[in-house]
């Protein structure tokens, strides 16, 4: 039965090989930690003021154009969620960019991952289309490309020009906080949340200024100041996902 024989020399060789692999993986992990510092400690967040939102859906359309999204899919959904006084209240829902995102945990191939600035990023070249993340997301923020999107995008050019390429058939996609705009803007020395070219398309297009964007780690950013001044809430906070999208409720006083 004992056809396998390992002598001492082979054993030492195997052990050395094993230790080398382990040490190598630790070095790679350190390198990844250094990358985190490269975000300069910025943590992007979005604030949605429901007392201002009129449910016009411009955000959804601008999002479709800038991210070249097919008409069947919405990265941003605006739902009517009640009334305050005589005013309808709407709840727009982009991806929450959770700090503890269920989708990142469940993905079998790490196609969803955290960027150092907190954005949950999809790698469309890696996704295998198993759709486990769709099932795990409490916000329904993920959509699968059931078919290839070809032909013209009805939202282009009226609502903007695509900044990113279309996703292929068979992968899951979701809102990205337009990080392509953030990254390009930062490279040009612009400030996301202040300069339009460095800010998510939905924030830029909003005609009533119901959306704000900025760095949570900068106490002087517009989002930090707003969140200090007013009471905010997050969707399904009870789940412990720690979303990066904050809502300011519509109240009787805010309507008047």
């Amino acid at each position: 039965m004992s056809d396998i024989k390992i002598n001492r020399r082979d054993f030492i060789k195997l052990t050395v090989a094993g230790v080398t692999v382990l040490a190598g993986s630790q070095i790679i992990r350190r390198a990844q930690a250094l990358e985190t510092l490269a975000s300069n400690g910025r943590q992007w967040a979005m604030v949605i003021d429901q007392s201002k939102c009129t449910g016009c859906d411009y955000c959804t359309l601008a999002c479709r154009a800038h991210n070249d999204i097919p008409p069947e899919i919405s990265w941003n959904v605006v739902t009517k969620t009640g009334t305050v006084g005589a005013q309808d209240v709407y709840t727009p829902r982009p991806c929450m960019q959770c700090a503890h995102a269920p989708c990142v945990d469940v993905c079998p191939v790490r196609a969803s991952s955290y960027r150092p600035d907190g954005i949950v990023k999809m790698d469309y070249d890696r996704c295998i289309g198993c759709r486990y993340c769709e099932i795990a997301c409490p916000y329904g923020a993920r959509s699968f490309n059931w078919k290839q999107f070809d032909g013209p995008n009805p939202s282009v050019p009226e609502w903007g020009q695509p900044d990113i390429s279309r996703r292929p058939r068979g992968v899951v996609e979701k809102c990205s906080f337009c990080y392509q705009r953030i990254d390009r803007g930062l490279a040009l020395g612009l400030t996301p949340g202040i300069d339009e070219d460095a800010t998510p398309a939905c924030v830029v297009v909003c005609p009533v200024g119901a959306r704000l964007f900025g760095d949570l780690n900068d106490p002087e950013s517009n989002v930090s100041k707003l969140l200090r001044g007013r009471t905010s809430y997050r969707l399904r906070d009870d789940l412990g996902t720690s979303p990066r999208v904050y809502y300011l409720s519509a109240t009787e006083e805010s309507q008047s």
């Binding site: 990142v104 945990d105 469940v106 993905c107 079998p108 191939v109 790490r110 196609a111 890696r126 996704c127 295998i128 289309g129 198993c130 759709r131 486990y132 699968f144 490309n145 292929p168 058939r169 068979g170 992968v171 899951v172």
Partner: peptide, 26 residues
């Protein structure tokens, strides 16, 4: 059949996500 990108079936072998039960199952 079930995955959207059958051509990428081998990705789980290369890109490990040790938190994912689906990775562990694969």
């Amino acid at each position: 059949l079930d995955i959207g990108r059958p051509d990428r079936f081998w990705h789980a072998m290369i890109y490990w996500n040790k938190h994912s039960l689906l990775w562990e199952v694969t």
